[in-house]
């Protein structure tokens, strides 16, 4: 015991004792238990800190009134559900816009007017090709043009064969 008492705790060991006395090595714990000087040092520091905490408690203004949970009203519940529903709806709309709108933009417009315009363009291209490459009648019968459901007489009128009588006349 005398050996223990001869070596007092250093300042850092006193601080460590204030933080957690049980974490000190056993011989220091024993020393602290029996050495009045060291234990007083430690207790004074602990007491100072304790008093500081107590003084801080006194320096805090008292809370004005009691805190109470808000009454569970229907409006409150409705508001909570309404907020959730609103959040879900806006998420769905956002996903819908993010996923579907770009798709719509990329797809061609198959409206009736456009389809007609495309058909007309193909038809006119066909006529132009036939006019430029007119064949004798027998060849025209063999090389039947694409069937657009057009009468043969009308086709003959539009694209006459190279050996047609009125062409010869001309």
């Amino acid at each position: 015991m005398k050996k223990n008492q001869s070596r007092h705790l250093r300042e850092d060991q006193i601080l460590a004792a204030v933080v957690a006395e049980n974490d000190l090595p056993v011989h220091l714990q024993e020393h602290l238990l029996f050495c009045r000087e060291c234990s007083l040092k430690k207790d004074h520091l602990s007491q100072d800190l304790f008093c500081l905490g107590q003084k801080a408690v006194e320096m805090v203004p008292v809370i004005s009134g009691r805190i109470r949970l808000p009454e569970k009203s229907r409006i409150f519940i409705f508001n909570r559900h309404f907020k959730n529903a609103l959040a879900i709806c806006s998420t769905i709309i956002f996903i819908f816009l993010a996923v579907w709108v770009p798709d719509w933009k990329s797809k061609p417009d198959f409206s009736k007017a456009q389809r007609d315009r495309q058909d007309s363009a193909i038809f006119m291209a066909e006529i132009k090709s036939l006019v430029e490459n007119a064949l004798p009648k027998e060849y025209q019968d063999i090389a039947d043009p694409l069937d657009f459901g057009i009468q043969a007489d009308f086709m003959q009128y539009i694209v006459p064969a190279s050996d047609a009588p009125y062409i010869k006349k001309g």
Partner: peptide, 27 residues
């Protein structure tokens, strides 16, 4: 514990703290 120990070490070195601790005790 490490943070607390470091805090106390810094506290002990500061003179203003010693005064504050003294005030706390002499309330």
């Amino acid at each position: 514990k490490t943070h607390l120990y470091r805090a106390l070490s810094k506290f002990k070195k500061e003179r203003s703290i010693t005064i504050l601790l003294g005030n706390g005790q002499n309330k």
